[in-house]
Design a protein around this nucleic acid. Structure first.
Lengths: 148, 148
DNA sequence: CAAAGAACGTTGGTATGGCCAACGTTGGCG
DNA sequence: CGCCAACGTTGGCCATACCAACGTTCTTTG
């Protein structure tokens, strides 16, 4: 994109929806760059985190848990399996399912990713002092919860 | 996407970057639905708002102003010109440029869009009491400003 | 003043993310 | 048994965001 030429219109600048988008885009840029240091994308982190927290599960169950489509889950598991951070095995009790399991190597990777993610969050919130960071998180959390 | 099956992993749920994304996605859904009532998308609103605020300008200048690529601007102006809410005319003083001007009909549409957008913002922030809305806007604004 | 470079609008293409449809396989249930 | 649902997989679609190239027109500079 070209370099900006003056500020965006006043009408747009102050819109809460625009502010939320700006924050999200900033956060995504920072988080994606952090995860890229470990060669993964957001889907990979989400999948590893879900496996660590809830244990082995089928692809479909994992997808519902973290909001990934079944079709996209195939590629995500493929990529993680190639790196030997997860294992995909048919479920003997239900041969429709693949049980996905995190490996020791996967847990090690997840530890690294946790650190990268934490640093990214700090970078994202860096412009705000600690008290305001907490307040922002609280407000966004309430916004999210009162929606569902 | 399938219906969720339990909450997302704890690691993810509380991440500021995730909260910002959730807020932005909610806001986009609400705003897009509101604008769709008038048959426009966000690009159209941004372009009309820029024209109203800064007056006629070339496509490239408008694009730099609101962050739209030159190539995407072509389609955006096409669509608005078909609805007769903007006019595209060659610049007599620089025949490389097209000068885009908002029409009376365009100003009328923009007034409607302003109302729709305002209602969408209210809906977006509805879960929060007024004081918290102001606080959230303030925090997000500071986050955006201290970045640039 | 001529030549080189930059800006413009336009076309066409690429990459990405999210989503949907269809299929064969397998399991649940009447 | 017969039907329907869930699963994994493939393949595709659509929207957004970019980028590259081109011919035209202006600007700069040698």
């Amino acid at each position: 994109m070209d370099t900006p030429e003056g500020p965006p219109p006043e009408r747009l600048r102050m819109l809460p929806s625009r502010l939320a988008n700006h924050a999200a885009m900033t956060a995504n840029r920072i988080v994606d760059r952090a995860l890229a240091q470990a060669g993964v994308r957001r889907y990979h982190y989400a999948l590893l985190a879900a496996l660590e927290e809830y244990g082995p599960a089928s692809q479909a169950a994992l997808g519902r848990r973290i909001g990934i489509d079944r079709s996209d889950m195939v590629a995500t598991v493929n990529e993680l399996a190639e790196r030997h951070v997860v294992e995909r095995a048919p479920d003997p009790e239900d041969r429709r399912r693949n049980i996905v399991t995190i490996t020791a190597e996967g847990r090690s990777l997840l530890t690294d990713l946790d650190r990268l993610i934490a640093a990214a969050q700090d970078e994202f919130l860096a412009p705000l002092p600690a008290a305001d960071r907490r307040h922002l998180i609280d407000l966004l959390t309430r916004l999210a919860e009162h929606r569902d």
